[in-house]
């Protein structure tokens, strides 16, 4: 069983390095939950992301709630959420107390000019590492491409895209036998080379 303190420390670390919000912490979360600690499988991690994105609230807090609950129930989710927001809250509190106006700091600006492209790269990277591990095939690869195009080019809301995918998945399951679906990806892996 996962200890509360390792749960807390893990989310403290993630919260402290959430720069640029939301998806920028996906690679760090993936590294912590999936690779290093083995708390979630890649599939479970992706499920958590889609749920966190489609529910109201802050993405990072929604992730903390789910992972904490899965590991240690309700108390685990409280520990994870508190750990996740503690450093950001204290940081802003300190800023509000000591610098009531804090724009245009030359050094902070310089650091952030360096950080911004790094954050973009950190968000882009898991698209490829996760795709590699999910064994995407030519039969499924159009789905993420279409989703990205809808959101990025046409400005469709990500929540709407998730809803459409959920309905489409539901309909697909309704008209095919579930057993056929449960190993859909494995089957397409095997049948493609033939």
């Amino acid at each position: 069983m996962v200890k509360y303190c390792s749960l807390f420390y893990c989310f403290l670390k993630i919260g402290g390095f959430t720069l640029g919000g939301g998806y920028a912490m996906v690679p760090l979360m993936e590294r912590e939950f999936v690779t290093r600690r083995g708390w979630l499988t890649t599939d479970e991690f992706l499920d958590a992301i889609s749920l966190a994105q489609s529910m109201p609230g802050v993405f990072a807090v929604n992730m903390a709630t789910q992972v904490g609950y899965r590991l240690r129930g309700v108390s685990g989710s409280i520990v994870a959420v508190v750990g996740n927001i503690l450093l950001p809250v204290l940081f802003i509190l300190a800023l509000a107390m000591f610098f009531r106006t804090f724009r245009d700091n030359h050094y902070v600006n310089a650091i952030f000019l360096g950080l911004r492209p790094a954050v973009v790269a950190l968000i882009a990277a898991p698209v490829f590492t996760l795709a590699r591990r999910m064994h995407l095939t030519w039969r499924t690869v159009w789905i993420p491409i279409l989703a990205a195009a809808l959101i990025w080019l046409l400005g469709v809301s990500p929540i709407l895209v998730i809803l459409i995918a959920a309905v489409a998945g539901f309909a697909w399951g309704k008209f095919h036998s579930p057993s056929d679906l449960s190993d859909k990806s494995d089957k397409s892996d095997k049948s493609d080379p033939q």
């Binding site: 992301i49 994105q53 882009a124 989703a147 990205a148 998730i162 995918a165």
Partner: peptide, 8 residues
């Protein structure tokens, strides 16, 4: 599969 597109 869709979430990959969201991140992209």
């Amino acid at each position: 599969v869709t979430v990959l597109g969201l991140i992209a």
